[in-house]
Computed example of a mutant assay.
Amino acid sequence: MIKPGSIILFDRLFLGSLILGALNFLFAWKQVSEKLANAPELAAIGFGSGFIIATFAIGLIINLIIWYFISARGSKVAKWILVAFFAIGLWSMLSNLNNPLGPQGMLLGVAIVITVIQGAAVYMLFRPDSIAWFDRTPPVDPDTFR
């Protein structure tokens, strides 16, 4: 079955958001390191730089696995896992806007842009051609009726 346009757009948006997220993580590293240095109680309970890097890497790997199962395999389960992760992430971001340990300034702006891009990617999973992709029903060829 040929990959529908909505899934191709999902690929571009979702992978673009992951790349933008990785760049945001790299640019935020100095700010995160400073916050960790100013909060030794976090390091004392194990929230050091190694933990932050490992958490980011594991999250990225999980996102790539979910993307693979959505894009290449047409998995409805992976689709709903992504929707749940997006909803949790959106709720978490909105509830932590005033958190002093959270992103601020330009980093917060980029995080909001990433969230909007991910929302658009999730939306692509609910368009009619995407639904056919997940149901594994090929679209009707108009030449069939000639």
Rank of each mutant, 00 (worst) to 15 (best):
I2M: 12
I2K: 08
K3A: 05
P4Q: 02
P4T: 00
S6Y: 01
S6R: 03
S6C: 03
S6F: 03
I7G: 00
I7P: 02
I7L: 02
L9W: 00
L9Y: 13
D11W: 00
F14D: 02
L15W: 09
G16W: 06
S17T: 10
S17W: 03
L18D: 11
L20K: 04
G21R: 06
A22W: 08
F25H: 04
L26H: 03
L26T: 11
F27V: 10
F27T: 09
A28R: 03
W29E: 10
W29C: 10
K30D: 15
V32I: 15
E34A: 11
L36Q: 06
L36C: 10
A37C: 02
N38W: 05
N38G: 14
N38A: 13
P40N: 13
E41S: 09
I45S: 11
I45L: 14
G46K: 09
G46L: 06
G46S: 10
F47A: 12
F47W: 04
F47Q: 04
S49T: 08
S49K: 13
G50P: 08
G50K: 09
G50C: 05
F51C: 12
F51L: 08
I53W: 11
T55W: 06
T55L: 13
F56Q: 05
A57H: 05
A57Y: 03
I58T: 04
G59S: 10
G59H: 01
I61W: 10
I61C: 11
I62S: 06
N63T: 03
N63P: 03
N63E: 15
I65S: 11
I66C: 06
Y68P: 05
I70S: 02
S71C: 01
A72V: 00
A72D: 11
A72Y: 04
A72T: 02
G74Y: 01
G74D: 00
K76F: 01
V77E: 02
V77G: 07
K79H: 00
K79Y: 04
W80N: 11
I81L: 12
L82K: 04
A84W: 05
A87G: 07
G89K: 07
S92Y: 08
M93E: 11
L94N: 01
S95G: 07
N96G: 15
N98V: 15
N99I: 01
N99A: 08
N99P: 05
P100K: 05
G102C: 03
P103S: 13
G105S: 04
M106G: 11
L107V: 04
V110I: 13
V110R: 00
V113D: 10
T115E: 12
T115G: 14
Q118R: 07
G119Y: 00
A120R: 01
A121F: 00
A121T: 01
V122P: 06
Y123Q: 01
M124Q: 10
L125A: 09
L125T: 04
P128C: 10
P128L: 08
